[in-house]
Amino acid sequence: MSKKYTTPFVAAVVGGAVLSLAAVCAQPVSAGTVEVAAMTEMKDPLTKQPGDAAKGKGVFANRKLGNCLACHKLEAMKEQSFHGEVGPPLDGVASRYSVAELRLRVVDPKALNPDTIMPSFYKSEGLHRVLKKFAGKPILDAQQVEDLLAYLATLKE
């Protein structure tokens, strides 16, 4: 397993529009003179309406929405063709992470690994040259994120 997957990243700058919502950060640690915080989870749901796992399954597979299979393998979705291998397989991911940890990984994985290829699915600011059609919008809306998380929570080993 490579470093890329496991780095408990100390993010020098933890910014981003939606992160201010309610991200939970560990005790600030100092790196040189800059105060930095290692963020590991995001406790508060983005919506009042609880997530719907069935809908979340659709968000996961849909190429225009999560398109998670572009980069991740998932046994539970064997019926779908072409699973990617850019990221680690997501089987049993809910046994490895809490929902709050998964939320941060979906909302803004760059908080954990600033150089990751994985998109921040709930971020709409600080982006460069977004196609007009998508400008100002995150990839997933808040309810889709919560639905997706409800589905991820079912992926237990």
Binding site: G84, E85, I117, K123, L127, H128, R129, I139
Partner: peptide, 28 residues
């Protein structure tokens, strides 16, 4: 090396970090 687009990726993220990996139906 500049991230761009709603998916916020740079050329390097696909072509330097992951050559050889399957990205959905494509091998990068």
């Amino acid at each position: 090396n500049q991230r761009r687009g709603q998916l916020d990726m740079a050329c390097k993220h696909c072509h330097e970090d992951f050559p050889g990996a399957q990205l959905r139906a494509n091998v990068l």
